[in-house]
Amino acid sequence: MDPGVDPDQGLTRRRRPRAVVRVSGFLHRHPLVRLLGLLSAPMLWLVVAYLGSLALMFAAALWSVDSFTGNLIRVPTLDNLRTLITQDVYRTVALRSLAVAASVTVVDAMIALPMAFYLAKVASPGTQRLLVAAVLTPLWASYLVKAYAWRTMLANDGVLSWALRPFGTSGPDFGVVTTGITLGYLWLPFMILPIFAGLQRLPDSLLEASADLGASAGWTFRSVVLPLVFPSIVAGSIFTFSLSLGDYIAVKIVGGSTQLFANIIYDSIAGGTNPPFAAAAALFPVLAVLLYLALIRRTGALENL
């Protein structure tokens, strides 16, 4: 061959280092090694660090605090759990939290359903795009800003009282109701979007068939639309329910002196007073959410997330 003629005819630009080729070949032949490589760092983080922390916290739920010195006593005892179950305060607050979470969920579903239906089935494609963006945008506005916005709406000299003054009434004082309104506002997009997605998956032909068979719009809604989007509603309710149950900040901003369960958790750890008790109390929202998830498993909602 003439010197100066590329033996390779320019087919490969430059040879890869032998080591790279060997590693690549090895990885190519061993998908299991690739998979383990991909999983290594994330599992170290999520299992060892994160699940490890959770386990550590729940183990600490069995510890106690020396009421005299304030030191941790690392001896397992069920005292924290016993206190939580037997004292009336905690039961009252837990029930109140469940009631708030449940009402927020129901009200959000009632508001979200007609809105999602309009977006998915009535609005023209152009309007739909615009309105979906309009529902999504507040989701990215700061949580605190939204809670704060409702403080300015609901305060004594706030917008609502000002608007209601000509009618001789005023808005509700800071309390459970204002907390519920604010939480419902915060989580509404989380309810609208799954229902919207569920309605979009619902073929129009089913609605037409129902109408052809003589059903009125209301009847079609009850017997065709509602059963088919129910899993989506439940999917949305996971967010509204669990987010409401874990919230302690909105209550502080618009709740006046109302306490929800997460406040109990926060208060027993914030001052560094009783971390084991906080850990024990944290079991309640976790168990409530897990129980809720178990209850709704059969509706197929988890596949609709």
């Binding site: 309009y118 009535v122 309105l131 309009a134 916005a149 709406m153 997009p189 809604f221 065709v224 639309v225």
Partner: peptide
């Protein structure tokens, strides 16, 4: 399903009100 014009209008109004409620507090802050 074929919605009556009244039902369409009601849905449109409800959605408008809902979006209004979403945006009024934010506008107040602005």
């Amino acid at each position: 399903m074929t919605l009556s014009p009244r039902a369409r209008l009601a849905l449109r109004l409800f959605t408008g009100l809902g979006l209004g409620a979403i945006y009024v507090p934010l506008v107040v802050v602005l």
